[in-house]
Write a protein that binds this DNA or RNA. Structure first.
Length: 899
RNA sequence: GCGAAGGUGGCGGAAUUGGUAGACGCACCAGACUAAGGAUCUGGCGGGGCAACCUGUGGGGGUUCGAUUCCCCCCCUUCGCACCA
């Protein structure tokens, strides 16, 4: 019969399901371990081999930790709201509800066929009203709270102190004062609008959509925003304690983008009534070098201060800018072309009293700082380019530090952006840049026209979408226009069943067409936007701790036992989105007392990408349209030639080269997990993906490699079983009852030690290699008639491969006479005494070159080792009778004769 | 342009604190068993050389008895950021 992976895997998957082997409950007597995967979007394409890699890694850890005595929470669910389901529905007429249900069922079946040890009783689905009830509830918590910079935490909006003059202006004034501080707020500002898809996009999403070939323009629309910027400081500071990959921390730091500097107020000449025009700068020490001022074209004061003579030119420029997408503005920047228009207005330099012209230019962005800058062309490249183009004056106020390597600089030719010492700057004359900045801020504060300021690149999170397949907002607009929250006991606000959910060209959301649903008694109307796909994934890890609770999102008891997540594995593509958004929500929930730690994910690991093979013409030939020509593996023949593989296209014989590329349906280089699981078994596929290389690294999929791992499992199987009667079952081999030979015991314990240490380090590829070494050794000894596997060793080995090949391990375990699953068996412990060796391989070098090796006693001292080494004939030969000048002895390793 | 990570056989990759470079697997070659082998088992496998031996971890230099590992310069790849004042 042999290794029948299909029968074995079917049997144990059924066993685990029937016995609910992986169902877990709170157990105060055992330490917990929470292992989480990034839950998938259940697309119609089904599971991808890339999913399998990350999910196998967490599965190994989950099974291993469980055997080490931890109470392991290892859940799975579906991030099922989102655009693809909606677009698929528009194409086929199948409702997202149906396709989502089917896709989830398909994903679940696929994951179960891989034998992952999820607690399926905890499965969650973001589109389930019982789930999104709480997504809506959390949103309302944000709507009901504001961020208090004094206490540095969220507070109930009712606790917001209302200034007397606001209170005096009446209820409506108090309400808008509060609305302006809520963590969830309405804002009418230019958003990223994609006319093709008829949706708005978050800043984080724009690049991806533009990549896909869609246009994105700026368009003012009324949108729900989340005030993530209030948490910028904490999101940055709390990165410190996280066990996350350095590059993810880096991406988040960049994204939050903290910079320290100063705000400086300039009065507008002739417009003292508009108040100060405030700029942000990181170089307050260059204030004396400011020769003009630039406002973003969208700056609210542009209209007020523009002179009549310049009005037409300014209006035209503003219109022009609004039409250009941010993308275009950026690409213009890369070419270095600067455009802008003089407003005709002037500001007064707060220190010198000089009149500086005020320009508008699209190189200044409204969304950063104050939307206005003081231009210091001598010390800023962008200002320099602009000043040169517009013939504005350039005044040097920083010089290279005396004795520094910098040549004599000419700021007329190029900006000097480095640090140095202040010159032509009375208040800070001669001071080094760092000190000059501090002194200047001090001076500005004293004279009342400036202050220290920290600015972040992070912008508030655009949180509404004009889509159907998302969570409805639990908000109602009263007839008088006021916004009211749907009371908690009326949640969830269920998504109405609709057939036509095409968005309108103007961006009116599809839900606005569900008039029965929208219209409420008394002229009130529901909010018709829905939440973005990120909403459901912001907190799913919390729902897993108490997934069926209908009166609370999660109980305090469950949260305090299971949280935080000890290990989170997923792709790096979520570094600036999901991972930032969930940290933000978590901090709000922390402030409100619903979670007990400020960070959700203690340790994060990114898995690499599995690449698929494509073949391209060796001569770089392209098709008629100039696009890359790609051939698929089944169109290509391979032949060995002088040690390398040559590939040619079947039929034409054209020479092609192999390339490894991201798997994609359009390239046709996708590996379907179902097919390889069918052919080689789940254990082989899982183990192969772990054997490919370090988890974090990308690696090419090579089915030959999978076959190699499959052979290893077959060999393992044959170590335990021999062929029975023809057509009958295989028989467990006769095994010695004792502990086995000292040699086998020693090898076993060495293997236990290595596998344990490597799993702890996430070095799964080398852990598997240790298992392979063990099996090969025992097979060979058995083949030489020395000894087969003895019972005790067999038992321990079955446990050792369980995290990697759980089905085969259970099969072996059960054949060895154990009626119950091995999932709760203790992990084998290496016997320290057996790990100790009496001798070691001493390497002997002469002049740093290896000349001999010998077995030396472990406890030999330096003199003994040197003597042993010197006695070697090879060493004698290479020394040729001369006396070495030096003898280096590294106990336990080597002896080197030098000279 | 700025920042981060990386570069080891034909391929994926191993290598505590500097101490036998290439574990393990794939591919390939040879052999055994075979009616047969694309099954299985055994052996070989960085390059050069009959051999002794030489050489070799992107390139160049340095420290050291000894460098894949530490330091300096350069090249290349991947990723992130990119008018952020």
């Amino acid at each position: 019969m042999g290794y029948d992976h299909q029968a074995i895997e079917r049997r144990w998957q059924a066993h685990w399901a029937e016995h609910q082997t992986f169902r877990v409950e709170i157990d105060p007597h055992r330490p917990k371990f929470y292992v989480l995967d990034m839950f998938p979007y259940p697309s119609g394409n089904g599971l991808h081999v890339g999913h399998v890699e990350g999910y196998t890694a967490t599965d190994i850890i989950a099974r291993y930790k469980r055997m080490r005595g931890f109470n392991v929470l290892h859940p799975m669910g579906w991030d099922a709201f989102g655009l693809p389901a909606e677009r698929y529905a528009m194409k086929t007429g199948r409702h997202p509800e149906e396709t989502t249900r089917d896709n989830c069922a398909n994903f679940r079946a696929q994951l179960q066929r891989l034998g992952f040890c999820y607690d399926w009783s905890r499965e969650v689905n973001t589109t389930d009203p019982g789930y999104y009830k709480w997504t809506q509830w959390i949103f309302l918590q944000m709507w009901g709270h504001y961020y208090d910079p004094e206490t540095r935490r969220a507070q109930p909006i009712a606790a917001l102190p209302i200034p007397e003059h606001v209170r005096a202006a009446g209820d409506r004034a108090v309400e808008s004062f509060r609305d302006a501080r809520r963590l969830a707020y309405l804002d009418e500002s230019p958003v990223n609008w994609c006319p093709d898809l008829r949706i708005v996009l978050a800043n984080e999403e724009v690049a991806e959509i533009v990549e896909a070939g869609h246009e994105v323009v700026r368009k003012p629309m009324r949108q729900w925003m989340l005030r993530i910027t209030d948490y910028a400081e904490r999101l940055l500071a709390d990165l410190e304690g996280l066990d996350w990959p350095a590059h993810v921390l880096e991406i988040q730091r960049n994204w939050v983008g903290r910079s320290e500097g100063a705000e400086i107020d300039f009065l507008v000449a002739g417009h003292e009534d508009v108040g100060a025009l405030t700029v942000f700068t990181t170089r307050p020490d260059t204030l004396y070098g400011a020769t003009y001022m630039v406002l973003a074209p969208e700056h609210p004061l542009v209209d007020r201060i523009t002179t009549e003579a310049q009005r037409e030119a300014v209006d035209q420029y503003v219109r022009h800018t609004l039409h250009r997408s941010e993308r275009e503005r950026q690409s213009a920047s890369i070419e270095g072309k600067k455009t802008g228009v003089d407003t005709g207005a002037h500001v007064v330099h707060p220190l010198t009293g000089a009149r500086l012209p005020v320009w508008i230019a699209d190189y200044v962005l409204m969304g950063y700082g104050t939307g206005a800058i003081m231009a210091v062309p001598a010390h800023d490249e962008r200002d320099h380019a602009f000043a040169t183009a517009m013939a504005l004056p350039i005044v040097q106020v920083v010089a290279p530090a005396p004795g520094s390597a910098s040549e004599a600089i000419d700021v007329q030719a190029a900006a000097f952006v480095g640090v140095g010492v202040a010159v032509s700057s009375p208040v800070i004359e001669g001071m080094p840049t760092a000190a000059a900045k501090a002194k200047m801020i001090e001076h500005l504060v004293a004279s009342g026209c400036g202050r220290a300021r920290v600015t972040y690149k992070l912008r508030d999170w655009l949180f509404s979408r004009q889509r159907y397949w998302g969570e409805p907002f639990p908000l109602v607009y009263e007839a008088d226009g006021r916004v009211r929250a749907v009371p908690d006991d009326e949640l969830p606000v269920e998504l109405p069943r609709m057939v036509d959910f095409d968005p309108s060209e103007t961006g009116e959301p599809p839900l606005s067409k569900a008039t029965d649903w929208v219209q409420l008694p008394g002229g009130a109307r529901r909010e018709t936007n829905t939440m973005p796909q990120w909403a459901g994934s912001c907190w799913y890890y919390l729902r897993f701790v108490d997934p069926t609770n209908s009166s609370l999102p999660w109980s305090k008891e469950a949260e305090s036992y299971w949280m935080p997540v000890d290990l989170y594995v997923g792709g790096v593509e979520h570094a600036a989105t999901h991972l930032l958004y969930s940290r933000f929500w978590h901090k709000v929930l922390f402030d409100l007392g619903y979670v007990h730690e400020p960070e959700p994910f203690r340790r994060l690991v990114n898995q690499g990408i599995i690449l698929g093979a494509v073949f391209v013409p060796a001569d770089g030939r392209r098709d008629e349209e100039g696009k890359k020509l790609v051939f698929l593996p089944d169109q290509v023949d391979a032949a060995e030639h002088e040690g390398t593989t040559r590939y040619t296209v079947k039929g034409t014989g054209e020479s092609v080269e192999i390339q490894w590329d991201k798997m994609s349906k359009s390239k046709g280089n996708v590996i379907n997990p179902d097919e390889v699981v069918e052919a080689y078994g789940a254990d082989s596929v899982r183990m192969y993906e772990m054997f490919m290389g370090p988890l974090e690294q990308s690696a090419p999929w090579q089915t030959e490699g999978l076959a190699g791992v499959h052979r290893f499992l077959q060999r393992t199987y044959r170590l335990f079983f021999e062929e029975g009667e023809p057509g009958g079952p295989d028989r467990l081999r006769a095994m010695g009852a004792g502990e086995g030979s000292p040699r086998q015991r020693k090898l076993l314990h060495k293997t236990i030690h290595e596998v344990t240490e490597r799993v702890d380090r996430f070095a799964f590829n080398t852990a598997i290699s240790a298992l392979m070494v063990f099996v090969r050794d025992v097979v060979q000894r058995g083949g030489e008639g020395e000894e087969g596997l003895c019972h005790d060793t067999a038992v321990q080995f079955a446990l050792l491969i369980a995290p990697f090949a759980p089905h085969l391990a259970e099969h072996l375990w059960s054949a060895l006479g154990n009626p119950r699953s091995l999932a709760d068996e203790p992990w084998p412990a290496a016997d320290e005494a057996l790990l100790r060796e009496d001798t070691f391989t001493l390497v002997v070098q002469v002049d740093g070159k290896r000349r001999a090796e010998l077995q030396a006693p472990k406890d030999a001292d330096r003199e003994q080792l040197a003597a042993l080494a010197r006695a070697e004939p090879e060493v004698q030969r290479h020394l040729g009778g001369r006396e070495p000048k030096r003898v280096i002895v590294v106990p336990g390793r080597l002896v080197n004769f030098v000279g």
